[in-house]
Nucleic acid binder design. Structure first.
Lengths: 188, 188
DNA sequence: GTCTATAAACGGATAGAC
DNA sequence: GTCTATCCGTTTATAGAC
């Protein structure tokens, strides 16, 4: 009883993976065509333009990640929440390297229309707001090191997560993500 | 008495800007052709393949940034060094937004050959090593907040700088870079 | 919905004249 | 060194048959 995945869902799912792997300018309808097994013209049937496809990819990806955030128990201690966040961040690709779709599109942002920019901005803000609350909690519990206002520290921390997944892939190691978590966690 | 810039230098300079703006897959020999005012075949004369061009762009960019690092006085207090670093990091593009060429290529790394990957890795390591020394100094001087070993904190900090220039451009603001500096600076 | 066929522009790259 | 001319594959996208 496998859940039936529609062609549309398959296209979107492969598009998400390809964007995370090679970015907006690094994949084509032809790539998707060979992955899904339909002709490029069929892909245009579901997603008339590449920008339509990418916008839906951002929305789908955002929904998944934000659902993951909501699934992190609100009653947990702050440092435990942060650990779960670090694991959830991005999506593990084939070889174990992680990358965030919205971090990738932030790099490609000068090639993208404004509606996609807004969607990526919304993803950034949602993550930063969530992290700000965790940092505020962690400061109170004396488990996380917060310098300055939680809002500012959260933006810096989110940037560090984004940068660390780039470095993780560049060096073929997951250790970079752990460095970020360790940089705010207070040793006991 | 303007310093004469050769065609080769102009090509390389525009290539650096274009890579920072749109990434490896987001610019073409045609773009360079119209910017420099020579035909694409002339560009191939200087840089036989696109990968040759990008490798030289990385080397030139690295040289400039590393020269900038060396120009930061060794006798300065750590927090002053960090301020200078934040200003030097990346390169200011047309509208005031900053971006780092090697951060951009780290995003595109899956489209690039191994010799370019190694050059980008070298840039990351050089920056991380420099930051590790500054953090160690700052910990001693009690001006910078360092959690854990300086080497690990430096990798997290460099990642934060990389992520923050992406966010700065995404949101059209320089404030994100300042958040990173503030996140390690101890208020007095 | 999916296909074939095709358009029209763009991609990196090369040969050879000047 | 720089040009013209050209190769040939790729890219996004559309029209129309089934």
């Amino acid at each position: 009883m496998e859940p039936t995945t529609t062609v549309r869902e398959q296209i979107l799912d492969h598009a998400i993976t390809l964007i995370m792997l090679r970015g907006y300018n690094g994949f084509s309808y032809r790539d998707l065509s060979s992955l899904v097994g339909v002709k490029t013209s069929s892909i245009h049937y579901y997603f008339p333009s590449k920008d339509d496809l990418v916008l839906e990819a951002v929305n789908e990806y955002s929904k998944e990640v934000l659902n993951g955030l909501n699934a992190i128990g609100a009653s947990l201690p702050a440092d435990a929440k942060l650990s779960k966040y670090a694991k959830l961040f991005g999506r593990t690709l084939g070889d174990g390297n992680q990358i965030c779709l919205c971090g990738m599109l932030a790099a490609d942002i000068e090639s993208l229309p404004d509606n996609i920019r807004q969607a990526v901005q919304a993803f950034f803000k949602a993550n930063e707001n969530w992290l700000a609350k965790v940092l505020a909690q962690g400061a109170q519990e004396h488990t996380l090191a917060v310098n300055g206002k939680p809002e500012n520290a959260a933006r810096a921390l989110f940037a560090a997560f984004q940068g660390s997944v780039l470095a993780s892939r560049l060096f073929h190691t997951k250790a970079r993500l752990e460095d970020v978590e360790a940089s705010v966690r207070i040793a006991r």
